[in-house]
Nucleic acid binder design. Structure first.
Lengths: 112, 112
DNA sequence: TTGACAGGTAAGCTATAGCTTACGTATTAT
DNA sequence: ATAATACGTAAGCTATAGCTTACCTGTCAA
């Protein structure tokens, strides 16, 4: 369409979409341990390294990771705060199964 | 490929994928209030009713909702427990921003 | 019983996610 | 200088998500 569309990161894809793919969740899990190079991140996967790069790009676009250069490596680091919106959304639903746990608790108390 | 593939619910798509689409999250939000008919669920959306039906089908496939017939209505109801896996995954990451909150708390204490 | 209502599903289309291979570009090692 | 390493990105392909319209079935109302 226009130049901006071409060059800008697409901000319209959100964290929910980013974590929908299992490979991207796994990448985040790896980064939760600590900063890592692409090589390192790509190793556990069956897919090609460029494929992993593309997943990293998605994560970068939504701000779930950040990069810095270190020698000839690109070191990726987690930015978990961007998961907060997801957490907030799901957290609202916890009451549905926690209620049941409460009920179970009551049941156990009353039938002891 | 085979008959089973044709007729069976595809179990390979998980809750993460199901909640990736904003419309499906909104549907779940509506159902969090209470059971509802398709009509009712479809009303807030721009898209056609069949489109909503298809989203409901996805939610049904992953077990996030269940249906029962009531007269000529199909009443959908939330099964939020299926979000527990999602919750568990994201919850692990809360420490990343809660740590920061803790640090802020300490800072405030120490500088009061 | 005939029509209106509620909703699922098939068919068909478009856009794009996700992968591959091939190539370009920094950076370091020799 | 040259080769090797560590990436990113472009090009191109396939599969499918997500939508539409059209049609079908099941239920209640007249």
């Amino acid at each position: 369409m226009n130049q901006i569309t071409k060059t800008s990161r697409q901000a319209d894809i959100d964290a929910f979409t980013a974590i929908a793919h299992p490979a991207r969740r796994q990448i985040l899990d790896l980064l939760a341990v600590g900063e890592s190079s692409v090589q390192n991140l790509a190793e556990p996967f069956e897919m090609s390294r460029p494929a992993v790069s593309q997943h990293l790009r998605v994560l970068l676009d939504v701000g779930l990771v950040e990069v810095r250069r270190s020698g000839r490596e690109q070191r990726y680091r987690l930015r978990a705060e961007r998961l907060e919106a997801v957490y907030d959304w799901v957290a609202h639903y916890t009451r549905f199964w926690e209620e049941k746990l409460d009920n179970l608790g009551k049941y156990l108390e009353e039938n002891e």
